[in-house]
């Protein structure tokens, strides 16, 4: 891709005492790209985003956004950034409209001039313009926060878990907004613990323990999954996992909602063998099928490869 670079990090590290938040992170984000950081809580996403938002100083390494160094050129950079912290940080005692006016004011931005950027989302919260921000629902709050982060027409948008704690419909609307913003050539960096949001990104980085395990498009990440995957639906998910772990040739068995995903070397086993095995053990199997790996499967695979097991990944 011969596109221009918007964000460039080189070997960023950050530690808090003995805790390593970022263990040398390097990546590039192109202009106008939606770039997702996928990882569980404590993976280092917030530290990374706060460094890029010029709120936190890295211990080592360099980071630049739009060619401006986050440490030395932070003053210029703050005009270009739109940042939405993970925790709702607007004024709860100001109304929706007052919050928007305030942030437009301190950015010296003209609401009317930039209104087209936020029109689609703001129209959803406009009926509550006089309501105090603290009294909005979670999804509304996030929409308002996005409006406030966009009102000065930033070049780069940094969104730290914008959809955490937001209902499914609002999440979908929120993402539709982000995809529309892409047409305005705004670079969007988004952190999320939700795997289903990963496929909506142009590229994703899977991050764990302050390290990036993989960076690629969501398709390529799933294509790189080296094993064959089976989805099993049965009457007792927990017993199925326990039994499948004893099955010869199985590499992993993980719970995915009410199904179990098991992986095996390609061509080693087939669905019929699994049905037979489980039936012999007295399990009632509803369905076994070969499945295409999702981002979550890849994440778990990569995590296991790096020797860490975590079950903090959220499935919606």
């Amino acid at each position: 891709m011969a596109t221009e670079v918007s964000i460039h990090c080189e070997n960023l590290t950050k530690t808090y005492g003995s805790v390593t938040a970022l263990a040398g992170i390097s990546f590039k984000v192109s202009k106008g790209e939606i770039f997702g950081f996928i990882g569980p809580d404590g993976a280092g996403k917030t530290s990374l985003f706060r460094i890029l938002a010029t709120l936190l100083l890295p211990d080592n390494g360099t980071a630049s956004v739009e060619g401006l160094d986050v440490v030395n050129d932070y003053k210029k950079l703050r005009h270009l950034l739109g940042y939405m912290p993970g925790r709702f940080s607007l004024y709860q005692d100001l109304s929706v409209a007052e919050n928007l006016q305030f942030f437009a004011g301190i950015f010296k931005a003209d609401i009317n001039e930039n209104y087209y950027l936020i029109r689609d989302i703001y129209e959803q919260i406009a009926p509550f313009a006089r309501r105090r921000a603290g009294k909005l629902s979670g999804g509304m709050k996030q929409k308002l926060a996005l409006c406030c982060a966009l009102i000065h027409k930033p070049v780069v948008l940094i969104l730290d878990e914008p959809t955490t704690g937001v209902d499914a419909i609002s999440r979908q609307e929120f993402w539709e907004m982000l995809i529309r913003l892409k047409q305005e050539h705004i670079t969007i960096l988004v952190a999320t613990p939700y795997m289903d949001e990963a496929v909506l990104c142009d590229r994703v980085a899977l991050i764990q323990h302050g390290e990036i395990m993989a960076i690629d498009t969501p398709e390529n990440i799933t294509l790189a999954y080296p094993y064959q995957l089976f989805r099993i639906k049965s009457s007792n998910t927990l017993n199925t996992i326990r039994l499948m772990k004893e099955f010869e040739g199985i590499l992993s068995a993980e719970m995915f909602g009410d199904t179990v995903h098991v992986s095996a070397e390609k061509g080693r086993i087939n669905a019929n063998a699994i049905i037979k095995y489980l039936s012999e053990k007295g399990m009632k199997v509803t369905a076994v099928s070969e499945a295409d790996p999702g981002i979550e499967d890849c994440f778990i695979h990569l995590m296991k490869r790096s020797g860490v097991v975590s079950n903090k990944i959220k499935t919606p």
Partner: peptide, 13 residues
Amino acid sequence: EIGTIEQINVTPI
């Protein structure tokens, strides 16, 4: 405490 300062700090104030 409330965290609103985060949002203020990223502005060019």
